[in-house]
Design a binder for these strands. Structure first.
Length: 482
RNA sequence: GCGUCGGUGGUCUAGGGGUAUGACUUGGGCCUUCCAAGCCUACUGCCCGGGUUCAAAUCCCGGCCGACGCACCA
């Protein structure tokens, strides 16, 4: 670990902490690993990101958002496969202390595959948080006990799958059907680490797109993305750069629908400000694929601190989820396709872009932080895109004098009335106030000076260039919203 | 979960058995006609619990948290 990397990390975390973006939860009780709270600026930033995401998938793709529960009964995860995959027994090697999940080859009493040592029970390895729903009747009745078992969802997706019949009806029985959801998910990670990278409670934004499996190679809008250049790392083979169209044609990406959504993820991440040269798509190898996935591509961000890290996963879940829920719940999850001649029943396939919002927040913080020397001082700037910047503008009186303050407050109030989140600051020198805003990524500073009192114009100073333009007060809002 | 190292104002840090150092930040005041200037002033701290000791922030034990390595990440 180079010291440059250390510095970078410390700086991002230090700034985020000091300026009220995020910090460890439960600090006054000593903290708890894997939990972070968003402070005022962090919550604004996160909200802005979520708003952009909704704009992109909701308005842009025409997907409807739902809000399902975060707790679900045992049955849901029994069906989804999470109970089995998430709640296995674990063993640990007495020799090398390596931790293993129990499977066919590895069990208590066997020999450690690493060092040949003895494997002993290490307890249950349960990544889902368990809880009780209601007061179970019949304490000794095992099935009643199981009935009352509840789990905090480890992904938001299941809430969409189990509502599929209702959602399909809402969509008047037609495919494709896209549903989105933003919400918390929970995983009781063994060793959460690296600030926002591995949390026990985190926010996901997921889209589940249900498609006719026969149509997977015919996305109606594929033309709009086909030429997008993608940096791809296939499961087997070398990193390459090619168009989405080429990747689908060569069979590197399984089908058009998946290709379309991989491309869209790239488009979204660039739009919110993730630099293209720090972005690549990596395909899961067979052995790392989740139990539900047929093909999966991770969008990875190149962190200066942590190296390549997953921030979005785009999976082709096939008909896995709908099929298992159909069978476990004894519910028809099929779609009836009617054409002139015939009627068919089929289980749709699911394409799923799944965004780790907290990791994206980290990626935004790290990749937006720029430092430069200005005169004798160092300037720290968070170069957020306007759309996601927590504070949209700050209003200053040039000097701390009553006549300027009065006018500045008037302008400040006017901008608030335009629904623009602005701050007012009159403390310290004007330069200090500019720097304060730079550090939290405020795109514009509006300064009221003596000319303002004469002709009702102000200076609007741009964050990245530090250049100023003189604008009539009435037009300030247009500049800010550009 | 294992191992190594660590935890001092809001942030960063010096120190380390006898009332804790400095810088920055922040609040108030002065000054200031555009990029962290200057002056005055004020607030704020030894992760938690137990032990040793006349005395513990300092030493010992345990816990919690963090960084790194190993493992884990469906």
């Amino acid at each position: 670990m180079s010291s440059a990397k250390e510095d970078r990390k410390d700086e991002v975390a230090e700034l985020a902490l000091r300026r009220g973006f995020l910090w460890q939860s439960f600090e006054i009780y000593g903290g708890a690993a894997g939990f972070y709270d968003y402070g005022p600026l962090g919550a604004l930033l996160k909200r802005g990101l979520e708003t952009e995401w909704r704009r992109f998938y909701g308005i842009g793709e025409g997907f409807y958002e739902i809000e399902a529960t975060t707790i679900a009964p045992r049955d849901v995860f029994e069906a989804s496969g999470h109970l089995k995959s998430f709640a296995d027994m674990a063993v640990v090697c007495k020799g090398c202390k390596t931790f293993f999940r129990v499977d066919e080859r590895i069990n208590i009493g066997e020999r450690c595959p690493e060092c040949g040592g003895e494997l002993v029970d290490a307890g249950e390895f349960n990544l889902m948080f368990q809880t009780k729903i209601g007061v179970p009747k019949g304490e000794r009745d095992e099935s009643a006990q199981k009935k009352s078992e509840g789990y905090l969802r480890p992904e938001t997706a299941q809430g969409i799958f189990i509502n599929f019949p209702r959602l399909l009806r809402f969509n008047r029985d037609k495919l494709p059907l896209g549903i989105i959801q933003i919400g918390k998910a929970y995983r009781n990670e063994i060793s959460p680490r690296k600030s926002l990278i591995r949390l026990r409670e985190f926010t996901m934004a997921e889209a589940e797109i249900f498609v006719d499996p026969r149509e997977k190679n015919r996305h109606p809008k594929f033309d709009t993305v086909k030429d997008r250049a993608m940096r791809l790392v296939p499961g087997e083979g070398e990193e390459t750069e090619m168009s989405v169209e080429a990747a689908v044609k060569k069979g590197i990406i399984a089908n058009e629908y998946l290709g379309y959504h991989v491309a869209k993820v790239g488009e979204f991440l660039e739009r919110i400000g993730i630099p293209k040269d720090k972005l690549r798509f990596r395909q899961h190898r067979k052995d790392e694929m989740a139990h539900y996935a047929r093909d999966c591509w991770d969008a990875e961000f190149l962190s200066e601190r942590y190296g390549w890290m997953e921030i979005v996963g785009v999976a082709d879940r096939g008909d896995y989820d709908l099929s298992v829920h159909a069978s476990f719940s004894n519910t028809d999850m099929s779609v009836h396709i009617q054409s002139d001649a015939e009627q068919e029943k089929l289980i749709p396939h699911v394409i799923e872009p799944s965004f780790g919002i907290d990791r994206i927040i980290y990626a935004l913080l790290e990749s937006s932080l720029y430092k430069e020397q200005v005169g004798k001082e160092k300037r720290k700037v968070l170069r957020f895109k306007k759309e996601i910047a927590p504070i949209k503008a700050a209003v200053f009186p040039l000097l701390n004098r009553d006549e300027l303050k009065e006018k500045a407050k008037e302008v400040f109030q006017k901008l608030r009335e335009e629904s623009i989140f602005v701050e007012y600051d009159a403390s310290g020198s004007i330069g200090r106030r500019y720097r304060r805003q730079d550090e939290i990524g405020t795109p514009y500073c509006v300064t009221i000076d003596y000319d303002t009192l004469e002709d009702d114009t102000v200076t609007v100073r741009e964050r990245d260039t530090m250049e100023q333009v003189r604008v009539p007060v009435a037009e300030v809002k247009d500049v800010l919203l550009l």
